[in-house]
């Protein structure tokens, strides 16, 4: 059985909680859900990785691996991965109607998770992690019934005491947990939260926020 994200063996002093979060993401990715088979979830990741890797190319110049995913699923995965700044309400409505709201939520959470994990590899100067093989496990896809229209493209949990973005995938709690499990350890650290204004990590808060804000700005992300 392949051991994924073996950072210590490669000489990277990555915090254990980051390694565990990445391994957990790969395990979840390789599991079937109520909306996608395990193979489909891995193909979403594969398409997202291919799109993001070619993000500097014009969309019609990009090449993709073969896939059994529907045209709408391919469009959603590739656009979120490589052209997210172009997304608007009309596009989102078209995609959610075509693939289904909850299926779109899971797809987007997979794409965002793979983008972050792949970017981490690139930032460290290591190859992208090999995508997992389907396992025999199942992700709980029970829908959150405490959701409302908060003005986003998707219904989200309401009320919510934390920053809006942290409830982005809350229609499907396991999808929210998949992505924000990575946020918790990669951005805030295991004991820190979005709302803490001072921290004691290796980077000062101003350093961290300058870096984060610049990444958001280059991506032309308003939020």
């Amino acid at each position: 059985m392949q051991i994924h994200f073996n950072y210590p063996a490669e000489g990277f002093g990555v915090r254990e909680e980051i390694m565990h979060a990445h391994r957990s993401s790969w395990r979840t990715l390789a599991s079937a859900s109520g909306f996608w088979t395990a193979q489909q979830r891995i193909e979403i990741a594969e398409q997202a990785r291919a799109a993001r890797s070619q993000r500097s190319e014009l969309s019609f110049n990009r090449d993709y691996p073969a896939s059994e995913l529907s045209p709408a699923a391919l469009e959603a995965a590739r656009t979120i991965a490589a052209d997210a700044k172009k997304i608007n309400r009309a596009w989102a409505q078209q995609q959610t109607e075509a693939v289904g709201l909850a299926a779109y939520v899971e797809l987007a959470a997979i794409v965002a998770s793979v983008a972050a994990i792949d970017a981490f590899a690139e930032a460290l100067g290591r190859p992208h992690e090999v995508l997992p093989q389907p396992n025999n496990e199942t992700v709980d896809s029970t829908l959150n019934e405490s959701v409302a229209d908060i003005g986003a493209y998707l219904p989200m949990q309401e009320p919510w005491p934390n920053p809006n973005v942290s409830r982005a995938y809350s229609l499907v709690p396991t999808a929210n947990a998949m992505f924000f499990g990575n946020v918790q350890v990669m951005y805030t650290g295991k004991d820190r939260g979005f709302n803490d204004l001072v921290w004691d990590g290796p980077l000062s808060r101003p350093q961290a926020e300058l870096l984060a804000a610049r990444v958001s700005s280059v991506n032309e992300c308003f939020y």
Binding site: V14, I18, I80, A81, A84, K85, I87, R89, A92, V105, A108, A109, V111, A112, S113, A115, A116, I117, A119, F120, E122, A123, G151, A152, Y153, L154, M156, V165, A168, Y169, F179, N182, V183, V185, M186, Y187, L203, A208, L211, A212, V215, S216, N219, C221, F222, Y223
Partner: peptide
């Protein structure tokens, strides 16, 4: 880690509005 996770967060924000 921070630069990488923000490359996921921006996609999350844009994909969900």
């Amino acid at each position: 880690a921070i630069a990488a996770i923000f490359n996921g967060l921006v996609r999350t924000a844009d994909a969900t509005g």
